[in-house]
């Protein structure tokens, strides 16, 4: 495959490199904001499962204008993995299922709570949709659980979901904590992808709810099988976000975009730090495992 093939195949991949984002997902958050205005007035934000850091990059760029003094804007990025440093972002390498992580976040905010929590985390997909969807929903619920510790009343929560067969269970769970739950698909997310984002506004936990991390938050289950199929499943409003004139992630564009006169190949902004396959690549560099 030629060096430029990926640039041709995916317009946002290319634009991310050209605009200095660490991943194409940066555009997704920007487009969600265009539609939902989630950055408005936000000075304290948490980016969960932040690596490689493109959403933190978006937050730093967009939240600065919300305070007169730049130092009043606090962005905390949490991830299990190490992430290359970003100016203006406080990094916590920790597990989002631990109370200690929640406490360190609040500590960074000097006892105050966050206005916005975002989570673009995704598991290593196995290829079996139901497991992938389940693990993704657990990741989201773990994010929601830590969010209940750190988010102020009325705050906003944005997270990636997989719209699979049991996504309605997750919607009903989220509706218990937020007044408005919508599902959004940025134009930079492919039509063919099951990925979408829930935008949950006005955090209002159920009365008497005490945040608790000892037990994981489990997703709902179908109460009886009447709910498994039929018109009474919980389905939340959908909207496509991003300007209609924005680039379309399914469209193939030529390397010379409209209005451009030259094209230059750009290297990715940040390459992976420690992938699981690193060891085998090193070990098998000199010996070949062949399928014979």
């Amino acid at each position: 495959m030629g060096k430029t093939s990926k640039d041709k195949r995916d317009i946002y991949y290319r634009l991310a490199k050209e605009e200095g984002w660490r991943a194409r997902s940066a555009f997704k958050l920007l487009q969600i904001n265009e539609e939902h205005n989630i950055f408005k007035g936000v000075t304290r934000a948490v980016d969960l499962c932040a690596a490689p850091g493109s959403w933190s990059q978006v937050l730093t760029k967009n939240l600065r204008q919300n305070a007169q003094n730049v130092d009043d804007v606090k962005i905390v990025a949490v991830d299990l993995q190490a992430m290359a440093a970003l100016p203006g972002v406080i990094q916590i390498q920790g597990d989002i299922t631990k109370v200690s992580t929640a406490n360190s976040i609040i500590q960074e905010f000097e006892g105050l709570k966050a206005d916005l929590v975002v989570c673009d985390g995704a598991p290593d997909v196995t290829g079996l949709h139901d497991i992938d969807e389940y693990v993704q929903s657990q990741l989201l619920l773990a994010a929601l659980n830590i969010t209940t510790h750190v988010l102020k009343y009325g705050g906003v929560f944005v997270a990636k979901i997989f719209r699979g067969k049991d996504v309605s269970l997750l919607y009903s769970q989220l509706k218990q904590f937020f007044e408005h739950v919508t599902v959004s698909k940025p134009r930079s997310s492919r039509n063919s992808s099951i990925e979408a984002f829930v935008v949950c506004k006005n955090y209002q936990p159920p009365e008497g709810y005490i945040p608790n991390m000892v037990n994981p938050l489990l997703d709902h289950k179908y109460c009886d099988f009447n709910q498994f199929t039929g018109p009474n499943r919980v389905i939340v409003p959908f909207n496509a976000c991003g300007d209609l004139s924005a680039y379309d992630s399914d469209t193939s564009y030529p390397l010379l975009l409209e209005g451009q006169t030259s094209y230059e190949y750009k290297e990715p902004v940040q390459s992976p730090i420690n992938p699981p396959y690193k060891e085998i690549l090193e070990k098998t560099r000199n010996i070949q495992i062949k399928n014979t």
Partner: peptide, 9 residues
């Protein structure tokens, strides 16, 4: 190889 500007369609 020179760069082919046509999109991979």
């Amino acid at each position: 190889c020179s760069i082919d500007f046509d999109p991979e369609m």
